[in-house]
Design a protein around this nucleic acid. Structure first.
Lengths: 334, 334
DNA sequence: CCGTCACTGGCAAGCGTTTGCCATTTCTTG
DNA sequence: CAAGAAATGGCAAACGCTTGCCAGTGACGG
């Protein structure tokens, strides 16, 4: 990986010489348009264009302390749930003229901490999605650099979260409308912040509807977590199941099919996330969609507009969720 | 996004002062271990550790011209096919101590070119997956910076491609073993390099097996491209279909189901890519799996080991593919 | 005992920008 | 028309690190 030596890129000094002005003037022509005479500026810009000048980001960063780069950390790049976050963040970053660095923390708090440390000097701030770090760790990081969180609320930090209160209400209302009198929540990892919020919201909504709600698990939030959960559900005789996420729901439905149970004939299934695949699994999954792209984009915006130290109260942006009704839910059997 | 001012990070000079040596010695203690006395080095390193010193990447980059950063460009971040590439590249980059910048070209050659231009100065090289640029454009880019390609072969450039010759052979053999005497290839975008390779391989394999092969399309390589393709297939009376990619195949199967045709009872369907979702769509899809993570990782390696200008012949790495047989293929009807 | 050399460490010149400050010129304004 | 205020451009000092070059110190061979 070697920069070809035969072509030396033009520098500010080259442009300055060509335009017959000082380097400071050239610099200002770019970064402080109103600080330089209009005609001079035109001339400088023309020369720069002619020479094919482009500023050296490293030099800019060195002087200014800004790299115009931010990092996005996710637990697992291949998890489709995060693809949306990544895309949204990428778009927002590009829109703001920022470069996006991507890091995979491998669902591992240690790796996450190391990655932060490694990148800290190279970026202006971090967007961390579904962080596995403790609140204290996160606050310590925020002490040293800018930080915005997705799907995790930590007091004092900029956060973007999904509106699970309303979303879970929608789920429960939907099940109630089909005549279900109770449901089972198939839980994911106990450390999951969003998992806790989901269960909390479901309970509240169930109470409001006079429905029963039980929690099973924890199970792995993957396809492979499905079979065990399915068996537990079958044994329980539940008529409706709400799963921690779509992957688990799909794995569960597959197992249900293997065991000869019909969805939604025997049992209705609801997921969370509306991941890629939820609308072409079988049956197509009813699930609570989050606006993951928006979440990524909002988090970047939060970062960009973050004001130095003064904000004691990190703003928390709540993004709407909506229930996508497909074919995995139906009237209660009998 | 402001670096908190209250804590100034220690610099080389701080460490030098603390250790009672010159900055050059500290620098060398890090980058040129054998160039400094062992005891001195220990001492310097200890002081650096105590102060929590970390080099400023921008300053390093300014002097050396290396940013230790590479960019990965993909047409669509949310396409699960590229998730593997991204993950592999991220892992390889992290392993080599490099930072990975991610760019989404939105399937658009113009955006791709702009992104390259914008990032060119900030990174040491590019990995471009499924580039939409012309060979000439790519060669021009390679003139100015390091470049490695995934899923695209361009003479003189480092490329990582899947072994479609063998893979398509596997597909055709599989269909032949089920008694199919011919098949239809449902094509994707005409500009797609891999699409061309796939069709080419399928034709050759068909010829070798004495089978008939027709090509339909082009269709959109997405779920939405499926219905039109399905209808064409139905009209043609084909017993087997090979689709440009899994998305198209899944969309096609869905339409087939809507129209009351059974897969694989009436028609067998094969996809390409083995994307996330291919094993839980209905029926589960038989598809040719590529090692996308490996591809991403290999491309990064190619970049890292790239020697200056001399290599006329860019090496092309061919990665194996393998057919994953699931439930969307079966004996020919009748 | 002197010349040669390997080994260490320091000096200082960059790398390409940004920016505080000053000098000059051009406006304003009473 | 003078005096103060903009407006404009240049100078030079950073920013934090790397590296070519030189000097001092011993070790070693002849």
């Amino acid at each position: 990986m070697v920069t070809p030596g035969h072509l030396r890129r033009p520098t500010l000094a080259d442009v300055a010489e060509a335009a017959g002005v000082a380097t400071s003037t050239v610099s200002r022509a770019f970064s402080r348009p109103q600080r330089v005479n209009h005609r001079t500026r035109e001339h400088v810009l023309a020369e720069a264009e002619r020479l094919g000048y482009a500023p050296n980001p490293a030099a800019q960063a060195l002087e200014s302390g800004r790299t115009r780069t931010i990092a996005l950390l996710v637990p697992d790049i291949t998890n489709p749930y995060f693809s949306g976050v990544i895309k949204g963040a990428e778009r927002a970053a590009a829109g703001a003229g920022l470069t996006l660095v991507l890091g995979d923390t491998a669902e591992n708090p240690i790796a996450e901490a190391q990655l932060i440390q490694r990148l800290e000097r190279a970026v202006d701030g971090f967007v961390i999605s579904a962080s596995r770090l403790t609140d204290d760790d996160l606050l310590a990081v925020a002490e040293r650099t800018s930080l915005a969180l997705v799907n995790r609320a930590t007091a004092g930090l900029g956060c973007v979260v999904a509106d699970y209160d309303s979303g879970t209400q929608q789920i429960v209302d939907h099940l109630a409308s089909y005549g279900h009198r109770s449901f089972v929540f198939v839980g994911g990892p106990p450390e999951s912040w969003s998992g806790a919020r989901r269960w909390h919201g479901l309970q509240a909504a169930a109470r409001a509807n006079g429905m029963g709600a039980r929690r099973f698990g924890p199970y792995m939030p993957t396809l492979n977590g499905g079979p065990a959960a399915a068996d537990a559900v079958v044994a329980s005789g539940a008529t409706a199941v709400v799963c921690h996420n779509d992957m688990l729901a799909i794995g569960l439905m597959r197992r249900l099919a293997e065991r000869g149970h019909s969805v939604p004939g025997d049992v209705s299934v609801v997921g969370f996330d509306d991941v890629f695949g939820a609308d072409f699994c079988h049956p197509r999954l009813t699930t609570l969609a989050e606006r993951t792209e928006d979440a990524g984009a909002r988090a970047v915006e939060l970062l960009v507009h973050q004001v130095p130290a003064r904000q004691v109260e990190g703003p928390t942006r709540v993004l709407p969720t909506h229930l996508v009704v497909r074919h995995s839910t139906g009237p209660v059997a009998g």
